[in-house]
Amino acid sequence: MTMIVRDVRAGDQADADGFVRVRRLALPFMVSTPESLVHDLTRTHPAARYRPLVAEVDGEIVGTAQVGLVPESPEPGQGYLNVYVHPGWLRRGAGSLLTRAAEKHLTTEGATRVFSWVLDEPDNRAFAERRGYRASRSAHFLRLDLAHGTLPPLPDLPPGVELRTAADFAADPRPLFELDAQGASDEPSDIDVAFTDYAAWLDETWNHPLLSLELTSVVLVDGRPAALSAAHTDGATRYSSAMTTTDRAFRGRGLAKLAKTASLHRARAAGCTEAYTGNDAGNGPMLAINTWFGYEICATEVRYVRELG
């Protein structure tokens, strides 16, 4: 048995299928598809130096790594690597090989600090700490049973408030870019980000194959987009919240809750049976909203960081 680490081959369907299969087994709380992997591989901004890797044994993909820089950070040299190994191949060297290859790539590309999400389990945390990583913040995955749960009803809309979908902005999505950028900059994180490249957002986010324009809800106040709940789906039964945010000028009025309520109702009507989301453990307002919907925590990750010499 020989284990190797190599790049994902663009255009190779077996690579895309194998990468996603491992991700789903190791991290079933995130929605991913082969099409989304190909999109990320081919459309991520070149400044990110994005490089997905796989560990392979006799033609079988047994581990994956997502590796790159964060070009949206005003502080240069911020990198990330997220390693996931097939549950049947744990403690057999795949994670170590992937981590070494990823760190080498990041160092070559000028990274001075690397961040990694690690499932909050003793073996996973010990793996990170043996390699010089230190724990930082934590975040939760949450799940909602759309098939059997009870969603809160859509409330009557106050005067001046409208509900739309992202599809209504297909001709000019810039107002949604501005909402998304503001929400991303306000989210609790170890890395500050500032989304200013509209063309890159269109390419990477708006045209992402997971994004459902029909299930993404937008709340307008007096004709102005004020809140957004972006929806990802696998095209079948799984739904994931990609971003829920409210313009700072309209916060405290329940608009994020309204947007997400509308999106979840649309998702259930479209045949989605389970909904996932993720929240920083310190994001009390959004955790409260998701608890109100009936989401339950199904896993926790810890953000680890290491300084690269």
Score class of each variant (00 low, 15 high):
D234F: 04
S185H: 04
L264H: 04
P225H: 03
S185T: 07
D222Q: 14
W201L: 09
D190H: 09
R131N: 03
L179K: 02
L211D: 04
K260E: 11
E274M: 08
R164M: 09
A270Q: 00
A147D: 14
D180T: 05
W206G: 07
D172Q: 09
R130K: 15
A259C: 12
D172F: 01
L163S: 07
T233W: 10
L176H: 04
A135Y: 00
L213F: 14
T261W: 04
T237W: 12
A135C: 10
L179R: 04
P173F: 00
F141W: 15
L264K: 00
A167R: 15
R238F: 02
V221G: 06
G149D: 05
D172M: 01
G149N: 04
H140C: 07
P153Y: 12
T216K: 03
A270R: 11
R174G: 02
S217I: 10
H232N: 11
R253K: 15
L151R: 07
H208M: 00
L179M: 06
D203P: 02
A230G: 08
G254A: 13
H148F: 02
A249V: 08
D197C: 04
L220P: 11
P173K: 06
P152N: 13
A135L: 01
Q182W: 01
S185F: 01
E204A: 07
L213H: 15
D203C: 06
S217C: 13
S240I: 01
E187F: 07
V218N: 07
A230N: 00
D192M: 12
R253H: 15
D192G: 10
R164I: 02
A231D: 02
F195V: 06
R238I: 05
L146E: 09
E162H: 12
G271E: 10
T216C: 07
S136D: 10
F141L: 10
A230H: 00
D145E: 12
L228K: 02
A128H: 06
L144H: 08
G235S: 14
A166Y: 08
A236R: 15
P209Y: 05
P173N: 06
R134H: 11
G223W: 07
R134T: 14
C272R: 00
R238Y: 02
L202T: 08
G252H: 06
D168W: 00
V161S: 11
L228H: 01
D234G: 00
A231P: 09
L202N: 11
A231H: 12
A242L: 13
L228V: 08
T205S: 00
P173L: 03
S241V: 15
L215E: 11
G149L: 02
A227I: 13
A147I: 08
E204P: 05
W206F: 12
G252Y: 09
S263V: 05
L215H: 13
P159S: 13
L213E: 14
P173D: 03
A135I: 04
T237A: 15
T237P: 01
K257H: 14
A227V: 05
D172G: 10
P153K: 12
G235L: 12
A181Y: 05
S136Y: 02
G235I: 12
